[in-house]
Design a protein around this nucleic acid. Structure first.
Lengths: 341, 341
DNA sequence: TAGAGTTGATAGAACGTTCTATCTGCCATT
DNA sequence: AATGGCAGATAGAACGTTCTATCAACTCTA
């Protein structure tokens, strides 16, 4: 019936209210140099005509933007959604809007998304680098001089601000907790080589073993691309060894929960037959059975810092590069062998 | 050190390549009316100068946009993230970009987000209405004549396209499955009155009971705002009854998993001591212990249809309003009483 | 060789804002 | 009565694109 209505602009408001375009613009931005009477008249016209502010046009004129791009790896992972939730809160509070996208851990897609976000005119970017990220992407961002904060995984982070967890320390803490409970054969299940988070965790695990004087057994470190099922095969790999481990670090909480299923599938009880510790501290960990001992990486803190960093760099583009590292924290529950039931 | 670099524009490219602005614009859009030689020259200049396309300026000129706004209730809920993932895939395939935001089930926030998305110039909107949504929000959208698809929960959906599950049928299916297994006292745990999804499910549950000749007992229907813990108190409410239920429908899979914890906390075993069925069909349901019987609402299908509907309406604004209802599907696992171990 | 096409490229206005500079009254001061 | 200052409002250019109309240089045809 009705064709696409030509949108109501600031000019229409001006005509309707009998003032100039400039005046309407000033009213919209709450200028103090306009009289109460005109303000009221303009606002009345705005209501009457059903006006929507065209932020794109304004951004074009002012060469600014109130959007921040956020690239996460996986929307389905609560660690990233918690991170996202905090970033959105912070951004909102500061008057920014978040364009959220997921890279699916694909560097090519990540590159495309970065370019797309630039075209969409973001004022800054928070990127959780995909495993296998190419330097080219970040070179491009750097030469465009766009404020960027790298989050969660340190990649090319000497040139950009960074907010993330201390993965090395996290694995040390977890390994120590298992050692303290008397375990000598401890596996590390899941994660792919080349993913800096995973590699740092393996390094921390190695260091803790070494300090306890335990020889490192490569057969106990199982690599795999994390999925909802991967933990099952990961744990079966170490169950097939002559000398089985009595405990395992799992790359993240997802893997840990899937390892629980793998154990049950093989007639073993998670927690008592094999002690388990995950990483991330996602809320679901508390709802698993047995409840999951995990090293919380404080996604909300990481998100808060990342948002702060990118916003502060938008405002002050030339300040020094800064790194904010969150200290991880062990949350002891039932899966690490102190089962209470 | 370096101030904010004035961005490279189409004019700079034109100067560098020794052609006109119009020519560069045509090259960017892949026009066939430009000679191979000029195309190459222009592309060379684009690479040399490091140009980024300003989509905002183009949108202003063409009065179009390739962005679709998506408002979901809760980023932390896998049902919505699966929905989102499919919508993003579809949008991407059709050349659209998704602006994703969450309403946190707050109508006021939802209203603000709608207005904000309009200002950011989306071509269309997919909204999963928050519980307690005000009609005003949707009136505003309607008078602005912006293409809108309502998803998941039918609200004001006589004026807008809709894609969602058949909640009534879902509850009938679930209730029948429990009746077939011999249960007579079946509870309905979680969800808030006023949430159309929940109300439809309760109605379907009621209908199935009625058809089986079972009298409806209001004490078995427990209302609560769903959270990661709410199922615990929900189930404790019905455990305190003289005549306890032997089975329960849970408002969604989250609630169901939390109900499992509530049962264990009270010394009961989920599945054998109380049969449980959830709704949504989220991937975690397969990873719980016992594995969760659930009615899948096919979030991916709902997302696919929603994306199709909004894109088709962007292209053809005046076609008739359409509704796409997904038929739910029971996925039988261990929690409904057929435990195999 | 004049006219008609065709191919490739272009000038200038337009999209909806904001910014800079300026203007009009009015009041107070001399 | 002339001057200065101030409050409130405005005209016109500008942001980076695309669109409409037009142009210049060829090639083909009769």
């Amino acid at each position: 019936m009705m064709g696409p209505v030509r949108s109501v602009t600031i000019n229409d408001i001006a005509d309707h209210a009998g003032v100039s375009r400039s005046t309407v613009s000033l009213v919209l931005r709450g200028s103090s140099r306009i009289s109460k009477a005109t303000i009221d008249r303009v606002n009345a016209s705005i209501d009457a005509l059903g006006y929507t502010y065209n932020r794109g046009a304004a951004n074009l004129r002012t060469q600014t933007s109130q959007a921040i791009g956020l690239i996460i790896n996986d929307l389905m992972n609560p660690f990233f959604t918690e991170l996202t939730a905090t970033i959105e809160e912070m951004a909102d509070r500061e008057g920014y809007f978040v364009y959220l996208v997921q890279s699916n851990e694909e560097p090519a897609r990540q590159h495309k998304l970065c370019m797309s976000l630039l075209e969409h005119g973001v004022a800054g970017l928070i990127v959780c680098p995909a495993t296998g990220s190419s330097l080219e992407t970040f070179d491009r961002l750097h030469e465009r001089r766009i404020p960027v904060c790298i989050a969660v995984r340190p990649f090319a982070s000497d040139r950009f601000d960074f907010s993330g967890p201390d993965n090395f320390r996290a694995a040390e803490i977890a390994t120590d907790a298992l050692l303290k409970r008397g375990h000598r054969r401890i596996a590390f299940l899941g994660g792919e080589r080349g993913n800096p988070s995973r590699d740092d965790r393996v390094a921390g695990y190695f260091k803790a073993l070494q300090q306890a004087g335990i020889e490192y057994d490569p057969a106990l470190v199982v690599e795999s691309r994390p999925s909802r099922q991967s933990g099952i095969t990961d744990v079966e790999t170490v169950l097939s060894l002559r000398d089985r481990p009595t405990a395992a670090l799992c790359y993240n909480d997802f893997v840990a929960i899937s390892v629980m299923h793998g154990l049950r599938k093989n007639g073993l009880e998670p927690g008592s037959d094999m002690a388990l510790i995950g990483f991330d501290g996602m809320p679901e960990a508390e709802m698993s059975h047995p409840t999951l001992t995990t090293v919380s990486l404080h996604p909300r803190e990481i998100g808060r810092e990342a948002a702060e960093l990118v916003i502060s760099r938008i405002r002050e583009p030339n300040r020094d590069v800064t790194r904010r590292i969150q200290t991880p924290q062990l949350i002891v529950r039932d899966s690490c062998g102190t089962a209470k039931r």
